[in-house]
Structures are given as structure tokens and as C-alpha cells.
Amino acid sequence: MTSPPVDVVAVVVTYNSADHIADLLDSIPAAMGELRHRVVVVDNGSADDTLAVLDTRTDCTVIRSSNDGYAAGINRAVRACSDADSILILNPDATLDEGAVPTMRAALSASGVGIVAPRVREADGSLSPTLRRGPTMGRVGGLSFTRWPAFAERIEDPREYERAHEVEWAVGAILLVDRECYRSLGGLDESYFLYSEETDFSLRAKDAGWATLYTPEAGAMHVGGGSGESATTHTMKILNRIRLYRRRTGTVPAATYYCLTVLVELRRAVLGHRKSWSTLHALVRPSARPPLLNANDSILPR
């Protein structure tokens, strides 16, 4: 017997997410309202009690997988529910407010909109600044504290979170994506493995004529760091930023971007950020890079 069609498929990738996944799943029914929906969870080889928690649930389909990366997990979850006309991408350490998804879906129905991001708060209730500007040479240093658009990738101004507007990209913890937008882009780019996949997706969507829209009318909470950040994941984040910049601008400008990144990580390391020492090592020695990135064949990550 085939399953009835649904309006929204919520897709989640878990990795050692036992402390958070139940709260997320509990929040989904009220967040969906009257929308027909399905929830698909792909577990990327958790070593904690995540699967034990999921085994007690009857409100989601669970797919056990090896860890092929976050983007691969999302794509696998989407393939498991091909009839929904919108895709809700969720981090396992997020929760949704009541009625959030119909509000996001209404925003998604506007002409040319392919991705919708809600207003997100931290666990303490404070605003989580999830909106971002695109990568540029000036923004390589992570100088968001300046709040100058030329240098700040993260949008900090609280006034920008009080109105609906188009953005270049938003943190991918909670995103509603139009199925046709997703299909036309071929899903998330699995070569990133972890980090930058949502940046790449939104920027490619913009290239193809699909806008990313922020709406303050839909709310959610994101704990952040639910799976933790190690020296390895920090390195992956930095390498993927260079990889993304190279793919969008070419080798020559990316070489400058790479050199600036080396200087930025050296400064951070000297100031006491221990993870930056490992990242600096990986930047200058391709053989020291995480094998999962397949980025160890040249100084400038491809």
C-alpha cells in the first residue's frame, strides 16, 4: 500500500543527538498545524543512545546510515519521501514553535521564493543571529563584531530580524525549501561533507532565480552545537569556506582568500584558540586535512 501524499516532509540528520532529538520530534505536530506531513530521520552512525531513543518513536521513519556527511544524510532523507511539495530541513537540536510551518509555507508560496528561514532564538530566549551575507574577500576575517557589511558576514542588527526580507543565506538549522527548487539544484552538494552546504545551496538557488526569504512571523529555538565542535570540525568549516569561495570566484581570487585565511587562523591561534593550530597545520599541509573532505591534493582546497 502506498503512503498518502503529504504537504511537507521534515528531514533530520542525527549524529550523537540523544540529548535533543526527542524534544525536536515532540515539537513537530503542533508546529505543522493542519498540514499533512511526514518525518524522516537519517542517523549517521551515532555512537550514543540516539538510535535507542528513535526506536521508541512511532512518529518518524528512521534510516540507519553510515556517516557520509550531513548533506548526504539530508539528500537520503528527501529521497525517502518524494511526494511532498516542500522540505523542512531541521537540525536535531532545534525545536519549532506552534504553527511555525504553515507560516513559513505561506511565505514560500510567494513568487520566486525557494527557501524560507524563520526567526530563531537561543536556549535562553535571546535572538539567534542566523542571517548571513555572502562570502567576500573583506569578510574572510570573521569581523562580524564591526557590524560593517563590508567585513561582517553575520547580520547582527536586531532591526533586520523584525521584518521579512530577502537574504543571501541563513544558517541551515531550520529551513523550508520548495521541492522544485531543491530538485532543480540537485539537492545539497555532498562534497562539502559538513559545513558550507547550506551556504552553497542558497547561493546556487539565488544564481538560478530562487530567493531565500526570512520571516519573523515563524519562530523556532536552536540550541547549537548539539553534536559539539572539535578541532577537526573547525578545520572542516574553514577549509569548506575556502572551497566554496574558490568554486564561486575562481583560482586566482581564491588564492588570496586562502592566504588571508591562513593569517586569520594564525592570529586566532596566537590569541589562544587551540583549534586554530590544527586548522593552520591543515591549511599549509594538505596531507593533514580530514580525509572525509577529499581536499588533500593541493594547497588550495578544490
Rank of each mutant, 00 (worst) to 15 (best):
N91K: 03
D7Q: 10
R38T: 09
R159G: 10
A205P: 05
G219H: 11
C81Y: 08
K275F: 15
L213V: 04
G172H: 08
D93N: 06
L292W: 10
L25Q: 00
T58C: 12
S144R: 13
A52I: 12
G186W: 03
A106E: 11
V101Q: 07
P253E: 11
P158W: 01
T130G: 15
E168Q: 10
R247F: 10
D19N: 14
A106H: 14
V9F: 02
G134D: 09
H165N: 03
L239R: 07
V9D: 09
D19S: 14
S298D: 13
L283I: 09
R119W: 07
E153P: 08
C259I: 15
G138L: 02
A31T: 02
V40M: 08
A18I: 10
Y182C: 01
R147C: 11
I21F: 06
A30L: 04
D68K: 14
S86Q: 01
P216E: 01
E168T: 09
L271E: 12
I242L: 04
R105D: 13
S278G: 15
S287I: 12
I21V: 14
G219P: 05
V42D: 00
S227K: 00
P149I: 12
V113S: 12
G69A: 06
M137P: 01
S196Q: 15
V8P: 02
H234W: 10
S109L: 11
I238P: 13
G45K: 07
T199N: 03
D68Y: 10
A10K: 04
A218E: 09
A123Q: 08
V252A: 15
E190P: 07
A255N: 05
A77Y: 06
A152F: 02
A173K: 00
G209W: 15
D178A: 08
W277L: 12
Y214P: 15
V53L: 11
A80M: 06
T58G: 15
A22F: 02
R302T: 11
E156Q: 14
I174K: 03
D189P: 03
A205E: 02
I28M: 06
D189R: 00
C81R: 03
Y245C: 07
S230L: 05
H37W: 10
D83R: 04
D93K: 06
T56C: 04
V12A: 08
